[in-house]
Amino acid sequence: MKYRKLGNSGLKVSEISYGNWITHGAQLEDVLAKKCVFAALDQGINTFDTEDVYSDTRAEALLGTALKGISRESIVLSTKVCHPTGTGPNDQGLSRKHIFESCNASLRRLGTDYIDIYFAHRFDPHTPLEESFLAFSDLVRQGKILYLGVSEWTAAQIKEGARLSKRFNIPFVASQPQYSMLWRVIEGNVLPACAEAGIGQMTWSPLAQGILSGKYKAGHSLPTGSRALDETGSRFLERLAGQWMQYDALDAIQRLIPIAHECDLTLPQLAIAWILQNNQVSSVIIGASQPEQIQENARASGIVLQSSIMQRIDEILDPFIERNPECTG
């Protein structure tokens, strides 16, 4: 496993992170979920990502239990705040009240004294940004969070956040956007804004909700055990990857498999390695329903793809790539 600095900070994260969105506490039994965490540790993954609302808080609690007994100093732990955690009017957003209450609740569930990277998971248009960043600043001073990040913010929102982070002296170092061979909406505006502010990327959905695994084939039934057959997964697949569930796009993805084999990689490994060719990416967050998936995908760390390979990938996928920056968020 290779490690990269997160933005301009001194924090080193593994090139591959393990995230437990829609797996821990939902798709996976507790024992299997813990085996996935242990498999990640065995592969040298030091960075773990979760959120307070994943599986109605069960994901945080399960990750905290799985990591119990692991040296806290040896891992980088990130979680998020913004989405609704209850039915009350203050149970969501980035108000000072919700930030403080959510952070304390996450600390309890994770069984830790501090969060390495605390992400503002979406922009909150209903709360003054100064209020949010002052709250984050206070949590930094209290030692409850070490670094601040944002997820799915636009370039303009990131620039304003960077300005306020300097004003309040907050180590704002991370962005967590969706990014893959097929989803490149951050390249036009978000990446330049982050580069200017010294913010690194911890990207999610490297396989475009499984589309880039190659398991979905035009004219074939959905494969047994695929996310598309799960009620929760099918909803996300329709929302995030439905545009590629068409014959031409699926056929193009199948044409990537020989390229992956030329590089002695599987298609998922090629998809993850492709993201890591971007030096603004600090880490790629992967999910898994089996420990073997983590073992396979972790091998994408350290892979260098030739420019000719990158060009061939672009030529095949070009008609299906989403680049519209307005899709951010």
Rank of each mutant, 00 (worst) to 15 (best):
D124K: 06
P128R: 10
R108W: 01
D116T: 15
L107D: 05
A120V: 03
T127R: 07
R122W: 13
L129Y: 07
S106H: 04
H126W: 06
A120E: 13
L110W: 08
Y118M: 09
T112F: 01
Y118Q: 03
S132E: 05
R109G: 04
I115W: 02
T127L: 04
A105D: 05
L129P: 08
S132H: 08
E131L: 10
L110T: 08
D116W: 09
I115G: 02
H126K: 15
L134Q: 15
I117Y: 00
A120P: 04
L129T: 08
L107P: 03
R109E: 04
R109Q: 05
A120Q: 13
R108F: 02
T127H: 01
F123K: 06
R122N: 12
H126S: 15
S132A: 15
D124C: 08
F133T: 09
Y114K: 14
Y118G: 01
L134A: 13
S106P: 08
S132F: 04
P125F: 13
D113G: 15
D113F: 03
T112P: 02
S132K: 12
Y118K: 02
I115A: 07
I117N: 00
P128F: 12
H126Y: 14
G111V: 07
I115P: 02
P125H: 10
A120L: 15
S106Q: 06
H126N: 15
A105K: 13
E131W: 11
A105F: 00
L129N: 08
D113W: 01
R108H: 07
F119T: 00
L110M: 10
L134N: 10
P125E: 14
A135V: 09
E130Y: 10
F119S: 00
L129Q: 13
A120Y: 03
H126G: 11
L107V: 05
L134D: 10
L107A: 04
D124R: 13
I117L: 00
I115M: 10
F133D: 12
A135H: 07
A120S: 14
A105W: 01
S106A: 14
L110R: 10
D113K: 15
L129V: 09
L134P: 00
F123M: 11
D116F: 05
I115C: 12
L129S: 11
P128T: 11
I117F: 00
A135Y: 07
D113T: 13
H121Q: 08
T127Y: 01
A135D: 07
R122A: 12
I117S: 00
A120C: 15
F119A: 00
Y114Q: 12
Y118P: 02
F123G: 06
F119H: 12
Y114I: 02
A120H: 06
